[in-house]
């Protein structure tokens, strides 16, 4: 990433800045052990590099100790039979946990539930979010006020979202649930208590909370479209719908893909809203991978099984990210070869 234009200026300035700085003992020692990082010939370059490394070191160390190390340990548990309540039965079992995971009908159902939830929620959020973004596109005070108010659900803890909808939809006396039951729209046990409607209700909750975020990200993409391009199309007589399909959407593809990917990653790890409403029920209808993993790990202390579920989740997230980045890369190559 060497920037040829600024490099000489930079070096001159650095040289002027440290006329009385000569390489210290630490730097000479580092130069001896890491000659590639601290070549002996350029003391100022080496000093600069040492300074930048020293500034990065805390965050790297911190993340290695408190995120990467626990993650590696956690992922490696998936190869062990390990229950905190029965520590004496701990044993290395290789891929047994994975074989069990993929042959367990309950886990297959959890995988399916997660997939249905992610696809349904993200598609709905995208369609509604895009419509909202188009409505908010024109920059004016009214749009900005509406955007600020629309973003309020994003700021609320997902736990509260779950509680609000659980209360509203309670079949006995909830303001919505009561009428839905009386009018026969929901089952006797309410939307959340009926297996066929429970997952769809969780999707609605997710849509309520995260559509505004989707709208915001898409709006940022819309605002990056050059106004002159749109004006030229208008002058040439393109209708609003034509401008949308031939200019706006094609130019938006990369930011649309990114918005979809980010929401899919977060949606695949949905937990709080389900935990406080159905906790995976009724009849496992809303049992997604994260709920299954937390139950196994933090309730039954089946660390091996929980790590296996989490590893599968991580693999799925990695797969989604790879596919989307390949799509974005291919699209950008097609547009600008």
């Amino acid at each position: 990433m060497a920037d040829a234009a600024t490099q000489p200026k930079e070096a001159a300035a650095a040289a002027a800045a440290s006329t009385h700085a000569r390489p210290g003992l630490g730097q000479r020692l580092l130069g001896r052990f890491f000659p590639a990082l601290f070549p002996p010939g350029e003391p100022l370059e080496a000093q600069r590099r040492l300074f930048l490394i020293a500034l990065t070191a805390p965050v790297i160390t911190y993340v290695l100790v408190f995120a990467v190390y626990p993650a590696i340990v956690g992922l490696s548990y998936s190869l062990w039979r390990y229950n905190l309540l029965r520590p004496h039965r701990t044993a290395f079992v290789g891929f047994d946990n994975y074989v069990k995971f993929f042959s367990d009908p309950a886990m297959q159902a959890a995988l399916w539930n997660t997939a249905v939830f992610v696809v349904a929620a993200v598609i709905l959020e995208f369609l509604l979010g895009f419509a909202l973004a188009l409505l908010l596109w024109r920059d004016r005070l009214f749009s900005r006020i509406c955007l600020a108010l629309l973003l309020v659900p994003v700021t609320v803890t997902p736990l509260a979202t779950g509680l609000i909808f659980r209360a509203l939809l309670t079949a006995d006396y909830g303001p919505i649930g009561y009428w839905a039951r009386i009018l026969g729209i929901s089952g006797e046990r309410g939307f959340l208590g009926t297996p066929s409607t429970a997952l769809a209700t969780i999707v609605v909750m997710d849509v309520w909370q995260w559509t505004p975020l989707m709208a915001l990200i898409l709006l940022a993409g819309l605002k990056a479209i050059p106004a002159t391009t749109l004006e030229a199309a208008r002058v040439d007589g393109a209708t609003a719908l034509q401008r949308l399909t031939t200019i706006v959407v094609p130019l938006m593809v990369p930011s649309i893909l990114l918005a979809l990917l980010l929401r899919m990653i977060d949606a695949s790890m949905v937990f709080d809203t389900i935990y406080v409403t159905t906790n995976g029920g009724p009849n496992n209808a809303t049992n997604v991978l994260m709920i299954a993993a937390v139950k196994e790990g933090l309730e039954f202390f089946n660390i091996g099984t929980a790590s296996t579920i989490a590893t599968v989740m991580l693999a799925l997230v990695g797969l989604m990210a790879t596919v989307f980045f390949l799509l974005i890369g291919r699209y950008e190559k097609k547009v600008a070869p």
Binding site: V59, V63, A67, Y69, P70, A71, V73, G74, L75, Y77, I265, M269, M290, A293, V294, G297, L298, I303, A306, S307, I309, A310, T311, M313, L314, V317, G318, A321
Partner: peptide, 15 residues
């Protein structure tokens, strides 16, 4: 560093 967010939190929580 940004991708730390992608890690399902149950994994790190137990260790």
């Amino acid at each position: 560093l940004l991708a730390i967010r992608m890690m399902p939190r149950v994994v790190t929580l137990m260790p």
